[in-house]
Amino acid sequence: MDPFSAWLEATRISTTMRNMTWLWPTCESIHFIGLGLLIGGAGYFDLRLLGFMRRVPVGAAKAFMPWAIAGFAMNFVTGTLFFVMAPHMYVPSAAWWAKVFFIVVAGLNAMFFETTLGTRVMLLGPNEDTPLSFKIVGGVSLFSWFAVLFFGRMLPYIGTGN
């Protein structure tokens, strides 16, 4: 086991949480519900950015984003708990690093949208196609979140550390 994982797993917080046998399945259940909220809210907005469902004003399609962010928050917290409980399953895992990479890509993509293109959202009415820049942001987001899901679920099977 790598030294960092060995250290973290020996800490009292990690040991205590591992001893609560119900905690892992509970966090998994929350993690999968969060997944549904995140894919639903973000995916819906992404589809509109890609130019689907044009009768929906782009600004209106964004109304579900707080639910996507809530789903992300649920998964960030439960994901952090998994990591603290069993870091050796993640630190040496190629799938976990790929998952983290795509979370960062999706995050930067969303920040780029909010800080540059986002202000133009409200200028787009219903029945309007989206500019290419919006389509790229929507495509990158949709692809990234499904990549996060893919590498998360494949984590026990690809490049695993144990």
Binding site: L35, G36, I39, G40, G43, W67, L149
Partner: peptide, 14 residues
């Protein structure tokens, strides 16, 4: 199966 879960629950949630 998890990809499908995301699509089913995602669509239903909206």
């Amino acid at each position: 199966h998890t990809v499908g879960l995301g699509i089913v629950v995602g669509a239903a949630v909206i």
